[in-house]
Simulated assay, not measured.
Amino acid sequence: MNLGEAIKTCRKLRGLTQSKLAELSGVSVSHLCLIEKNKRAPSIAMVESISKALKTPLSVLVFIAAEKEEIPEMKEDQLDSLSTGILELMDGTRKQQSPF
């Protein structure tokens, strides 16, 4: 799982600096930097706080962080496509399609 990269991607998508995300989530800038570099593993409570500050559901953040080996029944291109689609929907650059 690459949670640090997922947090960094969502942070940039939201147009937030590390300082601003740290302030909004109650995490120190240095700790957030280490999390984004995957040098520190955040607690669940910390990830929840970060996901709230990012206005991104925790489940979405965890899915974006998933790596191919963690979901062996899904092809890598499917995982990439779903992750990209989720990020585009969050960013508003992709229009939602009706399932009907």
Rank of each mutant, 00 (worst) to 15 (best):
L21K: 00
T93G: 09
M46L: 13
S49I: 06
Q96C: 10
R94L: 12
G85V: 05
L34M: 09
L82D: 07
L21Q: 00
Q97A: 15
N2K: 10
M90E: 07
S81L: 14
A66R: 13
L79S: 10
P99E: 10
I71R: 07
D77N: 09
K95Y: 11
K95D: 15
L24M: 13
R40H: 11
R11S: 00
M1C: 05
Q96A: 14
L87S: 03
P72L: 07
K55H: 10
L89P: 00
E88D: 15
P42Q: 03
L87D: 01
T93C: 08
A45E: 15
K75T: 12
N2C: 04
S49K: 13
I35G: 00
I7M: 03
G26C: 11
L24Q: 02
S81T: 14
G15A: 09
R11W: 02
I50C: 02
L82E: 09
G85T: 05
Q78M: 15
R11V: 01
G15W: 12
T93H: 06
Q18T: 14
E23Q: 13
N2T: 05
Q97L: 15
L34F: 08
V62T: 04
L58H: 11
F100R: 09
S19P: 02
T84G: 08
A6G: 07
S83D: 02
S51G: 10
V29F: 15
T93R: 12
A41M: 11
T9I: 04
A65L: 02
D77E: 11
A45Q: 15
F63C: 05
K20E: 12
V47D: 00
G4L: 01
I64Q: 00
S83R: 06
E69M: 12
T93P: 10
Q18L: 14
S83L: 02
V29D: 02
F100G: 12
A22N: 03
T84R: 12
L54E: 00
A53C: 13
S25W: 03
L24E: 03
N2H: 10
S98R: 08
K37T: 14
S25R: 02
P57G: 06
I71T: 09
F63G: 02
I86K: 03
I50G: 01
S59N: 08
G26I: 11
L24P: 01
G92N: 07
M74I: 10
L54Q: 05
P99S: 11
E48D: 11
F63K: 06
S83W: 01
K39C: 08
V29P: 04
L13A: 13
L89Y: 13
E70W: 07
P72F: 03
E76G: 05
A45G: 15
M46E: 12
S25G: 12
L16A: 02
L61P: 01
L54Y: 02
I86D: 01
I71L: 15
L89I: 08
L89G: 04
R14M: 06
E69P: 05
E67N: 11
L3I: 14
A65K: 00
E23W: 04
V62N: 02
M1Q: 03
S59P: 01
K39M: 14
V29S: 05
A22S: 10
V62F: 07
S28L: 08
V60C: 10
Q78G: 09
E88T: 09
L32T: 02
K39V: 11
L58A: 06
D91G: 13
A22G: 07
S43Q: 13
G4Q: 00
